[in-house]
Design a protein around this nucleic acid. Structure first.
Lengths: 110, 110
DNA sequence: TCTAATGCATAAGACTGTTATGTATTAGGC
DNA sequence: GCCTAATACATAACAGTCTTATGCATTAGA
């Protein structure tokens, strides 16, 4: 893993985009998907993930659906229309950010 | 400007790389250069910049040279050999980070 | 003459995320 | 059958990094 500080500020963006690309997901599933997509470089911790999901839900960006799997509970999250707008914003913002950084650091992208 | 949180963890990298590319610089000059290079998107605040410079100096990554300009003082910073190694590390780390993020977010680079 | 820009510096506070902890179910190795 | 790891949620104490606020002082320009 790279320095975990770099991840700061990207958590919402990651969660929102993964939800957009994979549809209905539950918390644990998100951590696993991100682990996979990042080739074991990004590990979302529960202490960061759950509060983020709750916050996005409270803001109306996500809605939930609780499902019982045997005796275990799963909370599925889905993007609301507002959430879908937010994803676009956040991803565009991140794309702009890396372009800016590439200029400042004089590095090649791709 | 993009969300300032994205900048978290990149300050040292930016400072080190700009110093590498432009040689001897003083604090205020660094803020101006970064402002330019980022096309007015990144503004390093003094409250973050000076402590960072002091820390890097304390760690032996930078050395300083104080110069009097009239009655005003300027502190020039230059990379030490250790500092030069650190730049490479940090820049490589950042490059890796954005590649990973591009995978996770499924966005094109460049 | 007054304001903005130059130039340094530190401290209080905010914001994110990590680490630690808690609870509980289920799958798999031995 | 038993124990551990994985699954699944959640919250609280703490740490790190940066922003905002403040302070001091010089110089350029309207």
């Amino acid at each position: 893993m790279h320095s975990p500080e770099l991840l700061k500020g990207t958590l919402q963006t990651i969660v929102l985009k993964v939800l957009k690309d994979h549809g209905r997901m539950y918390g644990y599933e998100i951590t696993q998907r991100v682990k996979e997509l990042s080739d074991d470089r990004i590990f979302l911790t529960e202490g960061a993930l759950y509060p983020t999901l709750h916050k996005l839900e409270a803001e109306g960006m996500l809605k939930t659906e609780t499902v019982n799997i045997g005796k275990r509970v799963r909370k599925y999250y889905v993007l609301t229309p507002e959430g879908k707008s937010l994803v676009k914003e956040r991803v565009a913002e991140f794309a702009d950010f890396i372009k800016t950084m590439a200029n400042v650091l004089q590095v090649q992208l791709g």
